[in-house]
Design a protein around this nucleic acid. Sequence first.
DNA 1: CGCAGAATTGATACATCTCAAGCTGGGTGG
DNA 2: CCACCCAGCTTGAGATGTATCAATTCTGCG
Lengths: 251, 251
Amino acid sequence: MSRTSTAPTKFTHVACGDCPIRHRAVCARCDDTELKQLDEIKYYRSFQAGQTIVWSGDRMDFVASVVSGIATLTQTMEDGRRQMVGLLLPADFVGRPGRETAAYDVVATTDLVMCCFRKKPFEDIMVTTPHVGQRLLEMTLDELDAAREWMLLLGRKTAREKIASLIVIIARRDLSLKPGDADGRVVVDLPLTREAMSEYLGLTLETVSRQISALRKDGIIQIEGKRHITIPDFDRLIEEAGDDSDGGFLA
Amino acid sequence: MSRTSTAPTKFTHVACGDCPIRHRAVCARCDDTELKQLDEIKYYRSFQAGQTIVWSGDRMDFVASVVSGIATLTQTMEDGRRQMVGLLLPADFVGRPGRETAAYDVVATTDLVMCCFRKKPFEDIMVTTPHVGQRLLEMTLDELDAAREWMLLLGRKTAREKIASLIVIIARRDLSLKPGDADGRVVVDLPLTREAMSEYLGLTLETVSRQISALRKDGIIQIEGKRHITIPDFDRLIEEAGDDSDGGFLA
DNA sequence: CGCAGAATTGATACATCTCAAGCTGGGTGG
DNA sequence: CCACCCAGCTTGAGATGTATCAATTCTGCG
C-alpha cells in the first residue's frame, strides 16, 4: 500500500467553499446551511491510477463526487467481455442513493481523489433539503442524455466514426474547462489507454489502434508519443465522427 | 386524421385516483393536494400506432406520462442510420423539465395514450413540492441503469445474444405485471416489428430475422404467427442472452 | 382474390475480430 | 550509465460475423 511515483495531492479536509468542484458537483446549489450538513458527513479518499475502487456486487455504504482525476464504470460478462458504461470526470457523482450494492466496477484511470458521503446520512439530507436532490436529478438527466448518445455510437457507428467521436468528446470536455480558440487547432491528451478506449467504444484494442493510425495517415489528427493529439481542423474531425453537424458547441 | 381500425380507449379526463398508472408514474408519491395541482395542468392525447409524436429538434412545451401503449425514443444520423435509445411503457416519463426542444424522435409503436402536463407549470410544481422531483429522480436513475445494461448489449453481445436478451427483457416486463409461474413455460407477445427490434439492437432487420429463426430451430423459442412467442425453458433463454446468471428476478 | 406490408431466406461482400509477431519508450537494476 | 525488460502499442494475415443486395414467401385485410 505504499505510494508510487507521483503522490496525488492530499486533500485531508478541504473547506467546501474552497473546493474545486464546488459549483458543478452535487452540492452546487446548496446554501451555507446545507453545505455545513454535507461537510459533517464527508471524507476524502485517494486512489492510485489503475486501482479498482469498487467491485460490482460489493456492498457500498457511501456515495461520492470525483474531486480530481478520472474514473470509469465498467460491466463485465461471465466470459470476460467488458463494456465501459460510464466515464467519470471531476464533479461527477458515483453511487446511487437507496441502493445497497454496486452495480458496476469503479476503476481509477488516473490518480484520483473522491469526496465521499456516508450513504445513510446523505439520504437523510436528500429528504430534508431540496437542493441536493434537485441537482442530482439534473446531473442524472445529463448522464442519461450522454448514455443515449453513447448508445448511438455503440449501435450504429463504424470503428472510424467511434474513434473520431471519442476524440471529439474528450476534446470538448477539455475545451469546456479552458476556453481555447473555438474552431481551429485543438490539442488534447487522451486520458485513456488503447484498451480503455476499446472498452468505451465496443471494439478490440487492435481495431482502436488501426483506426487511430488511419486517422493519422489521413491527416485528421497528429500524434506525439502515445497520448498527445493535435487536431488541425476540428470541424473535419467532427465530420468524421458522423454527428449531426449542427454543433451544439455552446449549447 | 381519421381513426383506423381499433379505436384507442378514450381518456378525456380521468380522475387521477382512477388512473391505471397512478402508483407507478411520476405522480406515484403525490398526496391529494399535489395530485390536484397536477390535475389542473394535465390533458390527455391519443396517438395511432406508427404515428410520430415528436420530431427531434421540435419545440416541446409539455412533458408526459405514457398511460397505455408503447412508444420509442430514436436517434437518427444524417445518412438515415437509426438507433432506438428508449422504449417507453405505461408509467414511463417523456420529456425533460428545463429543456426547450426534443432531443429524440418519439414514435408510437402501438396505439397510445399519454397524460401530458404543460411544461412551465409542471416545472413550477417541481420546485414547490418535493414528491414529483423525488419520484422523477428515482425513475431517471432506473432509466440510467437500463441504458447501461443496453450499452453492454450494443457494445459486446453477439446477434444471437442480443435477440435472446430482448426477448428476456420483454418477457420480464410482462411477468412483472401478471405474475405467472416464475421459471417454467413463458408466453410473450412481441410489441415490436422486426425493424423496430433491429433499431433497438443495433442490427439489420435481416439479421434479426435470421437469429429468431435460429433460436426457433434450436428449440429455444416457439413461434406462432409473427409476434407470439412461447419459451419452453426460460432459464435456457437467459443463458443464451449471456447475462450474469444470478437472476435478480425478484430484486 | 389479390394486394401491400412484413418477414424469411439466399448469395456475396466487407468490417471487425482473432491470433501472432514485432515495435517503442521509460523505468530499473546491475 | 547502459542494457534489459515489460507494458502499452502497432502492424500483419487470415477467419468470421454481420451487412448488403436480391428474391421469395407469408399474412392480414380491403
